[in-house]
Simulated assay, not measured.
Amino acid sequence: MHDVVHDVAIFIGSKEKHCSLRSLEASPMDSSSKDSSRSCNRMSIDISIKNARLSVGKDYLNLRLLMILNSADSKSCEGFDADVICFTGMEKLNVLYLSSINIRSFPQTLDLLKQLATLHLEYCKVEDISVVGELTCLEILCVQHCGNIKELPAHIGRLNHLRVLELHSCKNLERIFVCVVSSLVGLEELKIIKWFDKWETEGNRS
């Protein structure tokens, strides 16, 4: 079983402390919610309502696994602002799972997740994943059905601990430079599924 699937399966069936929030609005949480959130190590958040906000800070210091998803159709989050998701204070996070999130770029605070080992993206509108190259402990990067990604950026080559790279059904992916993949010294498994046959060497870079 793929590690990210394994992690999510554990999350769903776990008896450990976790929170499941259908929506997290911009208004402050009450004291009882804050007390509960401080002890959470696994959390799922549905952002399918407008004005949803995840502002983490000191209230989620123990999180290890976070799922952010949109259970409705993508139009319900049209124009969703990446900056309303704040990862400050989540330095212990190990697994981040994003599904059907209509954002064009990652939150600026993503690079704070220095202990993140698994990043899974599916059906997201993100166009540039360069900031992922700052996640120096990342071991698994899985990108599925993200149709706006056109190139595997050079910054990904910085991920010396990356063991698994999966690019699945990213229909507009145009270029992967061989030098980027060859820089991934710890890579054990590379999966590129559907809609890609355009490997390029450094000399082909325009």
Rank of each mutant, 00 (worst) to 15 (best):
S37W: 06
S37Q: 12
R38T: 10
R38W: 07
C40M: 04
R42M: 15
R42T: 08
S44E: 02
S44N: 06
I45H: 12
I45K: 09
D46S: 15
I49T: 13
K50H: 08
K50Q: 03
N51Q: 08
N51C: 01
N51A: 03
A52W: 01
A52S: 15
R53A: 13
G57Q: 09
G57T: 04
Y60Q: 11
N62P: 05
N62L: 13
N62Q: 15
R64L: 07
R64H: 01
R64G: 05
M67W: 05
L69V: 01
N70H: 07
A72V: 05
D73A: 08
D73S: 11
S74H: 11
S74K: 12
S76L: 03
G79T: 08
G79H: 12
G79K: 07
F80R: 07
F80C: 12
F80K: 10
D81P: 06
A82Q: 14
D83I: 00
D83G: 14
V84K: 11
I85D: 08
I85R: 12
C86I: 05
C86W: 02
G89K: 08
G89R: 09
M90A: 01
E91W: 00
L93R: 07
L93M: 14
N94H: 03
N94Y: 00
Y97R: 01
S100M: 00
I101L: 06
R104V: 13
S105W: 01
F106I: 05
F106W: 13
P107E: 00
P107N: 12
P107C: 10
Q108H: 08
Q108D: 14
T109Y: 01
L110Y: 01
L110D: 04
L112T: 01
L112W: 00
L113E: 00
K114I: 06
Q115A: 05
Q115I: 00
A117W: 00
L119F: 08
H120E: 02
C124K: 03
C124S: 06
K125N: 14
E127N: 14
D128H: 05
S130D: 03
V131S: 15
E134H: 12
L135R: 03
L135F: 05
L135N: 13
T136A: 12
T136K: 11
I140R: 09
I140M: 02
C142Y: 10
C142I: 03
V143T: 03
V143D: 00
V143P: 06
V143G: 11
Q144N: 10
Q144T: 12
H145M: 04
I149Q: 04
I149V: 00
K150S: 09
E151C: 13
P153N: 08
A154E: 11
A154Y: 10
H155Q: 14
H155K: 15
G157N: 04
R158C: 06
L159G: 10
N160T: 09
N160V: 05
H161G: 00
H161V: 02
H161M: 04
R163M: 05
R163F: 01
V164C: 15
V164M: 15
V164W: 10
L165D: 07
L167S: 03
L167H: 01
S169H: 11
C170T: 12
C170Q: 11
E174Y: 04
R175E: 09
I176L: 03
V178S: 05
